[in-house]
């Protein structure tokens, strides 16, 4: 009565074998994606060590490397939270500059370091929350909003510099901050805290859900607005901390602080294998590995005698290449 007509010539055993092979390949791809950034760091180290005849691994250079990568590592710890919701932001660099300016002015005026830092954090978090506010309630793309915040902060810094001239941080009163120990401690504490919040709290998980599908997240009871403010605030906090170390190292508070940070952070995010649109594939360690790669690249190119400007060009090129290679174009818009 029923005419059963099984097509296909493969036997069940064949079929199972093919299935296993396909599974193995999928697993392998997953592993490669995970390991690729680490391999990248290693490859860069080997490359520059060879090219510089070992100079790259000298104690002096490693110290320099720590100093160079320190600010960026702190920034990308915050960046992981922001980019988990796909919050592409162009104001990072100038918010840092403004925060450094506030800390320096207050500290130079005789305020305690702790209070100055608190003020810096307040200003930085406040600036970032402008973007969060615009995103939440005015429904404007946060990318556009961040452009405006960038201009606001830059304008403020330039105005103050124009009025007061060169502002130098009172280094002697807080020299201990510039030590390797302080930096390593700060970095370790922030990275650990960030890791726990990102992976083991409702807030961290909610951020990735928002990055994945905001509507579904809202319907599942996630308080989108609150989480967005949270993400931007953490970014602001990290920026303030990074700005303190930057101004102490650089000496003066001006627009040079945070210069190039926007591209650096984006490159770090992408090189580390962190999706720019955020979501479940966002791993906390990825931007940190990426930041290390960016710094090694900058440092190595410097050692080889290529001017800073050339470094920008190379980083820009690298950014576009990696985005083109890794970004899943079908999945949605890069800038939402």
């Amino acid at each position: 009565m029923l005419k059963l007509q099984v097509s296909g010539h493969s036997s069940p055993e064949d079929s199972e074998q093919i299935q296993n092979e396909l599974m193995r390949r999928a697993k392998r791809n997953e592993r490669i994606t995970f390991l690729l950034p680490f391999a990248g760091v290693l490859a860069l180290i080997v490359l520059f060590t060879t090219l510089t005849g070992g100079q790259f691994l000298s104690v002096d250079n490693l110290k320099l490397l720590l100093n160079q990568c320190f600010s960026m590592e702190i920034v990308v710890i915050g960046g992981a939270f922001l980019y988990a919701i796909g919050g592409l932001d162009m104001a990072i660099g100038s918010v840092m500059a403004l925060s450094a300016m506030v800390i320096t002015l207050l500290f130079n005026a005789g305020l305690s370091l702790a209070l100055s830092i608190l003020a810096g954090i307040a200003v930085s978090v406040g600036s970032m929350c402008i973007t969060a506010f615009v995103r939440n309630y005015l429904k404007v793309s946060p990318f556009i909003a961040s452009m405006c915040v960038m201009n606001i902060c830059q304008g403020l810094v330039l105005t103050i510099v124009a009025k007061l001239g060169v502002i130098t941080f009172a280094y002697s009163r807080a020299a201990w901050i510039d030590s390797t120990l302080t930096k390593i401690l700060t970095l370790v504490i922030m990275a650990l805290l960030g890791y726990v919040i990102f992976n083991y709290t409702r807030f961290g998980k909610s951020l990735r859900a928002i990055g994945g599908n905001e509507r579904a997240a809202r319907i599942s009871g996630i308080k989108i607005e609150k989480c967005v403010f949270g993400a931007y605030s953490i970014m602001g906090f990290a920026l303030a901390i990074a700005s303190l170390f930057s101004v102490i190292r650089g000496g003066t508070a001006d627009t040079s602080i945070g210069n190039g940070m926007n591209l650096n952070v984006m490159t770090a995010i992408v090189l580390g294998g962190f999706p720019l649109s955020g979501g479940a594939n966002a791993k906390f360690h990825a931007p940190m590995i990426g930041a290390l790669m960016v710094t090694i690249l900058t440092n190595g190119l410097g050692l080889l005698g290529y001017a800073n400007s050339m470094g920008y060009a190379i980083k820009g090129l690298l950014f576009v290449t990696v985005v083109a290679l890794t970004y899943e174009k079908s999945k949605g818009k890069l800038i939402s």
């Binding site: 990735r208 859900a209 994945g212 599908n213 319907i219 979501g279 479940a280």
Partner: peptide, 11 residues
């Protein structure tokens, strides 16, 4: 509205 497609079943 119900699912995050690009996330695990567990998430």
């Amino acid at each position: 509205e119900s699912l995050i497609l690009n996330a695990s079943i567990q998430d």
